[in-house]
């Protein structure tokens, strides 16, 4: 992707760890943990249950899933722009971007709540069948991650507004976590909603 180097890094081309080691321990570990969830889902699906899974998937609203994907990837853009603005010293704009990202996150939660509600009202609970067990647990764990991400964003927002010189590693770390929440959702959306 040409044009992304210089503007993003302010001209630096040497290798640099974004954020700090701590957040990467967290993020990489979380990525592996989610892979375990995916593996559990695949194993349950493929071991003789595929018909059931296919039928159950029909009940999922791809449209709601699509909306949520758009919401999250837009929030990721805001976070990335916010980090970039902070790096340029534009802290007011940066915190504005984080507010927008946080708003997206909250909208995501509302859409998710509505999605769950409409399933529950239709009698599809966590113990309905194996597919819905995985659906509720995976999306549930993801929601917990969104909540943690929102907490992180609030911490970043306070840092950008309060501190005389906001710590860039913290801002980057929060951004990195939020992007992880976003791309994990890409995979959940593909696996649960789209791939049949």
């Amino acid at each position: 992707m040409h044009g992304l180097e210089a503007p993003v890094m302010g001209g630096a081309t040497s290798r640099r760890l974004p954020g700090d080691v701590n957040i990467w321990v967290f993020v990489i570990g979380d990525m592996l943990i989610f892979s375990a969830y995916f593996a559990a889902y695949l194993f349950a699906d493929r071991v003789g249950n595929h018909e059931l899974f296919l039928q159950s998937q029909q009940y999922l609203s791809q449209n709601l899933g699509f909306c949520n994907t758009l919401i999250l990837l837009t929030s990721s853009l805001f976070v990335a722009l916010g980090v970039h603005a902070a790096r340029l010293g534009d802290f007011a704009v940066a915190s504005r971007f984080l507010e927008l990202a946080g708003a997206c996150g909250v909208v995501f939660l509302f859409v998710k709540a509505y999605e769950w509600y409409s399933k529950l009202v239709g009698g599809l609970t966590i113990s309905t069948n194996a597919f819905f067990m995985h659906y509720y647990v995976m999306t549930g764990v993801h929601v917990v991650h969104v909540l943690i991400g929102l907490t992180f964003l609030i911490v970043l927002w306070r840092e950008l507004r309060g501190a005389p010189t906001p710590r860039m590693e913290l801002v980057e770390a929060g951004g990195i976590y939020w992007h992880m929440v976003d791309f994990l959702w890409f995979l959940i959306f593909a696996l649960l909603y789209l791939m049949r």
Partner: peptide, 13 residues
């Protein structure tokens, strides 16, 4: 270390 704090979040989840 901060990464121990992050691991504790794994524990909580």
């Amino acid at each position: 270390p901060k990464w121990l704090g992050y691991m504790s979040i794994w524990g909580a989840v």
